[in-house]
């Protein structure tokens, strides 16, 4: 499921980033990579605030839609 559909407080594991070169590249740069755990810190209509390790990243809904996650979490 896309990251944009997670609810506040939920965590998941990044499975795939879809989308064009720029979108993908920007997401990778900020640490959105396969196999990383993400946590939704805030989801209230506007952009989401995502926790990626110690980093906090604001991400628009459109971009969050390109990040596919698995709620079962990462293996390790």
């Amino acid at each position: 499921m896309p990251l944009s559909m997670l609810r506040q407080g939920e965590t998941a594991c990044i499975k795939e980033i879809v989308g064009g070169r720029t979108a993908k590249g920007k997401l990778n740069d900020l640490g959105f990579v396969n196999g990383k755990t993400v946590k939704v810190h805030s989801s209230s209509g506007g952009p989401l605030i995502i926790g990626l390790g110690d980093n906090r990243i604001a991400i628009g809904r459109g971009m969050a839609h390109k990040v596919l996650v698995d709620q079962k979490g990462c293996e390790n």
Binding site: A23, K26, L30, I57, A58, I59, G60, G62
Partner: peptide
Amino acid sequence: ERSHFVMELPP
């Protein structure tokens, strides 16, 4: 041509 919004929120 919408742009991509991702921005770090530094501590």
